[in-house]
Design a protein around this nucleic acid. Structure first.
Length: 864
RNA sequence: GCCGAUGUGGCGGAAUUGGUAGACGCAGCAGACUUAAAAUCUGCUUCUCAUUUUGGGAGUGCGGGUUCGAUUCCCGCCGUCGGCACCA
């Protein structure tokens, strides 16, 4: 392939243009306040999800989204916008540290090398980034502001009344104690069961467990003292404020489900002289509660356990504690539990029901206790069957006709008898065996019981969220240290002036195998003063990515994380493109930080990312996900080497819709490469020595009608398709246009210029090169660079045809075509059609019932 | 199990306020150029029936429905991919 003569000398002009752009800072954009800032233009902030600079370099999946944003950015810039299109590095991360463990080399070095490689690769693709705004999350200047934002969280609490973050200084003024305040901070310390991975030497967030487990690492649960971020405080706002965002509905739903709001009630039961509160979404089934279940870890278990059950309880707890989360769910087929010996009193009827512990009730959700209604809850039902606990039906599933038509009547003929084949009915219906609200619908019964509970002080409506607080500390080396010191067992924030706090150099990076963070090895660093010890945990990789988009607005500011002026001008991000793998975590975390910064008055918008688009995964040629082990990974460097950056960019966009999953095809790359070759040869010819020169058929000349039509169709289609991110169809239109121009004996300069102009965002090097060749040949007609020129406008007048072909159908079947003038009226067309031989043939012996004329499109003759 | 996507030629994919299904590209076939090949250019290319052109029929996962007309709208299934998974 590389031996073959190239269709066009991309290996010469691509590096040439890249060098020109770099030297001239062609794509640098000014900020408000800068000398060359043009305030008259609207702004457009188009953002890629920045990469983790891995050792294996760029993958063909990266340039998919990057090319899309590049086309948009170049298009917007030429359409009169100030465009912010930056790039940077999510450079903290475990792989660099793993490398350090193996080689002893500081992760900083490995990271710097990888970044250099990534930058080289991205530059070889000709992306119009403003490289002056490049950021690196491991840069001390960046770390400084990540730590500063952490301190904002640390020094804030969530005010329930206004649903906003407020400075904790307000609590001090209210006279709250130090301990009380520490309970309320958005960044707080808690002893919680965490996911500890001995071989990684760190704890992981719940959300990360699966990912690392899939990579073969072990993860176990154990209680540890950790930094947490109170993201749960924002649960409702994180749901509500999705509404105004232009995101795929599926992604919004994914986030909503992750946050997992459920509306229900809390109900307090008496157990002897203790009381226990349960959470239920079905308070209407209170009469059907035949037992209660506490989570095995529930603090009340010891108090209510009878002496004869104590041993069984202890044994069961040991068994549960040993189970990892995975095992707990994998063994979910069979329910297990132990009777505590205690009984709870159902507040609604005074019945005594047995209290059990079982691991299907989680301490971390709701109140860690449930009322079990086996007749109407699948899990309770299975448990009751297992332990032979009685069931009471309290919702009638029959005669539901108009209340619940399809979704809830699957258990209709089941009568909850506890028999082996019985099923339970978990849908809505009419309350029965429930004296207080006999005959009411589920919704009505819920209202009534909640009102009653509230009146009696036994509970009431309650909302719960599935989402947990964010476990924010890691025991790694290669992350931001917490700007915190400990004095007498209490944490204190470093002063802003002490930031950034950088990690000390270490002898080696090997994990100790205990949950003691790596930084604790650096005793000189840890003991930083009389009675002072530094926090030795570090922040997770997510920290840097929670605010990087803000830093791009003002990447070199040393006074503030972003100047108010720059933030106010550039935010929000108008278009954010990246993979679905970040649909929940990154996007949720970043939204959370952004809201905190907004509440505290540091940023002007409620949400960071106005429009979100997920690019689809690119599969290998074999249709499965690219992976080293399968050997189906395509390296962009090889594609650039063989076909050029423009061909790679064009192919990435031509493959299919941006959001769709699609397989790679080298043949497809060749296809677009050939197309670029055709565009090149529209203007250029080669001699036997392989030297290119301009063709003489390119002339200053007028375009004929047909050419004007296809040119203006192309401007229109490409403009509209870029706006709707339909790059594949934009490219096919440019192919159509090229094929038309190729047929011309004389190629008018203006025609080829239009084609190059719309091709420019897609294939910036080739279009710019041809443009410069034409400029040299026709200095009076052409000048400047395409990337700096105005985007062409189409004129409708060239699109209209005088005569239109109309399709003729008889009974919906295509039978004929006629050509009529563009303003022929309906009657005229109808007459014409009925006079056609082919139409007569097909309506022979039938009566014409109706003639449907769709102006400019078709005529359908209905006859029988 | 639940939620969300998706299903169109040999392949990637076009086309939806309902109006010519298969644009564009790949692969394939034929031709031109060439000593030859590559490259390039031109033509054909959903399936099927018919002796040929003209032509007939079928066709957008499957089965129904609405309509003059359905890839597009409605109802019911099936397959593939992704996410969640005892959250009370």
């Amino acid at each position: 392939m590389t031996e073959r003569r190239k269709q066009f000398p991309f290996d010469q002009f691509e590096p040439k243009w890249q060098a020109i752009w770099e030297k001239n800072k062609t794509f640098a954009v000014a900020n408000p306040g800068d000398a060359d800032f043009d305030a008259s233009k609207p702004k457009y902030f188009v953002l890629d999800m920045y990469p983790y600079p891995s050792g294996s370099g760029l993958h063909v999946g990266h340039p998919e989204g990057y090319t899309a944003t590049d086309i948009i950015g170049r298009f917007k810039a030429r359409s009169g916008y100030n465009v912010l299109h930056p790039m940077g590095w999510d450079a903290f991360g475990l792989p660099a540290e793993q490398h350090a463990i193996k080689t002893g080399e500081h992760p900083r070095i490995n990271t710097a090398n990888n970044i250099e490689n990534f930058r080289r690769q991205l530059k070889s693709l000709g992306f119009a980034y403003d490289w002056d705004r490049e950021i690196n999350t491991t840069d001390p200047e960046y770390v400084k502001w990540t730590q500063w934002i952490f301190l904002q969280l640390y020094n804030s609490y969530f005010d329930e009344k206004t649903q906003q973050a407020r400075p904790v200084s307000e609590l001090e003024e209210q006279g709250l104690s130090r301990d009380e305040i520490d309970e309320l901070r958005l960044a707080y310390v808690a002893e919680t069961p965490v996911n500890w991975s001995p071989d990684l030497g760190t704890v992981l967030a719940n959300e990360e467990v699966e990912e690392w487990r899939a990579k073969g690492h072990t993860v176990e649960r154990r209680p540890l003292r950790q930094w947490m971020l109170r993201i749960t405080a924002y649960a409702q706002r994180l749901i509500d404020e999705l509404d105004d965002l232009d995101w795929p509905e599926g992604i919004k739903l994914l986030q909503k489900n992750w946050i997992g709001r459920s509306d229900g009630a809390e109900v307090t039961f008496q157990i002897g002289d203790q009381s226990v509160t349960v959470f239920t979404t079905r308070p209407d089934t209170l009469y059907g509660a035949t037992y209660m279940v506490l989570a095995p870890e529930h603090p009340l278990v010891d108090d209510i356990a009878s002496d004869e059950q104590k041993q069984a309880i202890a044994d069961y707890r040991v068994k549960c504690g040993a189970k990892s989360d995975l095992e707990r769910t994998e063994l979910a087929k069979e329910k297990s539990g132990v009777f505590t010996g205690g009984y709870a009193v159902n507040p609604v009827n005074g019945e005594k029901i047995p209290v059990w512990i079982a691991d299907y009730v989680l301490m971390s959700y709701g109140t860690g206790a449930i009322m079990a209604v086996p007749a109407h809850d699948q899990r309770d039902f299975e448990f009751a069957q297992q332990y032979d606990i009685p069931m009471i039906e309290v919702v009638n599933s029959e005669n539901l006709s108009d209340i619940t038509s399809t979704q809830t009547n699957h258990g209709q003929d089941a009568h909850a008898t506890g028999g082996a084949d019985a099923t339970c009915f978990s849908g809505e219906g009419i309350a029965i065996n429930s004296p207080m609200f006999e005959g009411l619908t589920t919704a009505e019964a819920k209202e009534k019981i909640c009102a009653w509970l509230e009146e009696k002080g036994l509970g009431g409506k309650m909302v719960n969220y599935k989402m947990r607080d964010w476990l924010f500390s890691r025991q790694r080396y290669w992350g931001e240290p917490f700007p915190i010191v400990w004095r007498d067992g209490k944490h204190e924030a470093l002063a802003e002036s002490e930031l950034p706090l950088l990690a000390p150099e270490l002898e080696d990076y090997k994990p100790s195998g205990t949950p003691e963070p790596l930084l604790s090895k650096a005793t000189d660093w840890v003991n930083c003063g009389e009675g002072l010890k530094r926090e030795t945990n570090t922040m997770p990789q997510w920290a840097g990515s929670c605010w990087y988009y803000l830093r791009y607005c003002d990447a070199k500011n040393s006074e503030r994380f972003v100047s108010r002026e720059a933030e106010d001008y550039w935010m929000n991000v108008d278009l954010y493109i990246g993979g679905t793998e970040h649909a929940v975590l990154h996007l949720l975390y970043a939204r959370f930080w952004h809201k905190v910064l907004h509440d505290l008055g540091h940023v002007s918008t409620k949400e960071p990312f106005q429009k979100l688009v997920n690019q689809g995964l690119i599969m290998g040629e074999d249709g499965v996900k690219m992976s080293k082990s399968r050997g189906n990974v395509v390296n962009p460097d090889d594609v650039v080497e063989g076909y050029g950056a423009d061909a790679l960019r064009l192919y990435e966009m031509f493959m299919g819709p941006l959001e769709q999953v699609k397989p790679w095809s080298m043949k497809g790359v060749e296809g677009v490469y050939r197309f670029l070759g055709r565009v090149w040869r529209l203007v250029m010819e080669v001699d036997q020595e392989g030297n290119w020169s301009m063709l003489s058929k390119v002339k200053v000349a007028d375009c004929d009608k047909k050419t004007l039509k296809v040119l203006h169709q192309t401007i229109k289609k490409v403009s509209e398709d870029i706006e709707s991110l339909s790059f594949n169809t934009a490219i096919s239109q440019m192919m159509v246009c090229t094929n038309e121009l190729n047929k011309l004996e004389v190629l008018p300069l203006s025609a080829v210029e239009i084609l190059l102009s719309v091709l420019n965002p897609f294939a910036p090097h080739l279009s710019e090169e041809l443009h410069s060749i034409l400029a040299e040949a026709f200095p009076d007609a052409i000048s400047g660079e395409l990337s700096q020129s105005d985007w062409p406008q189409w004129e409708e007048v060239f699109l209209i045809e005088d005569e239109i072909e109309i399709v003729v159908q008889v009974n919906g079947k295509l039978r004929d075509r006629i050509t009529v003038s563009k303003d022929a009226d309906k009657d005229e067309v109808e007459k014409l059609v009925l006079d056609r031989d082919k139409v007569k043939e097909h309506i022979d012996g039938k009566t014409v019932r109706k003639v449907i004329v769709v102006p400019g499109r078709l005529v359908n003759v209905v006859a029988n």
